[in-house]
């Protein structure tokens, strides 16, 4: 059995505690220990972005993040995205623009979009494409996802 550590962190605005094996990924902690299944496993090596979360204000692949290293930090997952107006706007834009098909890449895409728009409030379409280059989607061909992020950036804040 792996060594375990007790850690505490702010998760979607809520003080959260967990006891985690030190070799566990943040993705497994979120899904298996904390029951937050919105964050998806799709590759486990940082190549697809389906597990994107925000840690201390920057987006990262939770499959690469050691859970134990979340200690004392601030995490936002898809479940917490709609908690602020920009996040809610992005989710709505994904719905309205047809950016969702099978939906499996969508949570990671939405979380990444939020981080991206926070750092690029008035992006061009090419900047949006670069912003989501780490998020794979097999259904949509990305066009409607780019539309949605663009629409969310234009909507009144």
């Amino acid at each position: 059995m792996s060594l375990k550590r007790e850690i505490g962190f702010l998760l979607n605005g809520v003080e959260t505690h967990a006891t985690v094996p030190v070799d566990l990924s943040a993705l497994s902690m979120l899904r298996d220990l904390l029951g937050l299944t919105g964050t998806k496993y799709a590759c486990g090596e940082g190549e697809c972005g389906a597990c994107t979360i925000v840690v201390d204000g920057v987006s990262t692949c939770s499959c690469l993040q050691f859970a134990v290293d979340c200690d004392g930090r601030t995490l936002t997952t898809i479940e917490g995205v709609a908690g602020d107006p920009l996040g809610a706007k992005i989710e709505q834009a994904f719905v309205d623009c047809g950016a969702v098909q099978c939906g499996f890449c969508t949570p990671g895409m939405v979380v990444q979009a939020k981080h991206f728009l926070e750092t690029h409030p008035q992006p061009t379409r090419d900047e949006i494409k670069r912003g989501i280059e780490g998020n794979l989607c097999r259904c949509t061909g990305y066009v409607k996802i780019i539309d949605a992020i663009e629409a969310a950036s234009r909507a009144d804040r």
Binding site: G46, T60, L64, E133, N135
Partner: peptide, 9 residues
């Protein structure tokens, strides 16, 4: 380098 998520970490 890789992608935004990886560059951030």
């Amino acid at each position: 380098f890789a992608s935004d998520q990886l560059r951030n970490a």
